[in-house]
Simulated assay, not measured.
Amino acid sequence: MEFITTHQWDADLWQKTRDIYNVAFGEHATKPERIIRNMLARGLSTLHVLMENDMVLAMALTGSMPNSSVLLLDYLAVRKNMRGHGIGKDFFDYIKEWARAQHQYNRILVEVECDDIPENHARIHFWERCGFHLLDDYKHCYKWGPQHYMAMVLYLKSKPSTPLKGKDCLMYMASFHKESYKLN
Rank of each mutant, 00 (worst) to 15 (best):
P160S: 10
P118D: 09
A60W: 02
I20H: 06
K80I: 14
L170N: 09
G26L: 06
F25G: 05
G26H: 04
D168K: 10
A99C: 03
W144C: 02
L164M: 15
E111M: 07
Q147V: 08
L40F: 15
H125L: 00
L47N: 05
E113C: 01
F25W: 12
G63I: 05
L76M: 14
L44I: 10
K178P: 01
N184K: 07
V49I: 12
V70L: 09
G166S: 13
P118G: 00
F92D: 01
K143N: 13
A29F: 15
I124P: 02
G43C: 12
A99T: 02
S69F: 04
V56K: 07
Y149F: 15
R123I: 01
D74A: 09
M51F: 02
N22D: 05
M152V: 04
A101S: 13
D12R: 04
M171T: 04
L47T: 02
L72G: 07
S161R: 15
I95Q: 12
M1I: 02
I20T: 12
W9I: 00
A122V: 01
E128T: 12
N184G: 11
D93C: 03
N120S: 06
A151R: 15
P32T: 07
G131Y: 12
T5R: 12
D116E: 14
M55W: 08
E111Y: 13
T162D: 08
N38M: 14
P146A: 13
Y149L: 14
L61N: 03
L71A: 02
C141I: 15
D115W: 02
H103S: 08
H177D: 10
R107F: 13
D10L: 00
M171H: 06
Y181K: 10
Y75C: 01
T62W: 11
D115V: 05
C169H: 08
Y149Q: 10
L13T: 04
L72F: 15
E113L: 04
Q8W: 07
G131S: 10
L72Q: 06
Y155P: 01
A174G: 11
C141R: 15
A11R: 10
V153E: 15
T30N: 10
M1L: 05
S175A: 15
M55V: 06
E33C: 03
R123M: 00
L170I: 05
M1H: 06
S45H: 09
K178I: 09
H103R: 14
C130D: 11
F92V: 01
C114F: 03
K143Y: 11
Y75L: 01
K178C: 08
K167G: 12
V49A: 03
D19C: 09
E179W: 08
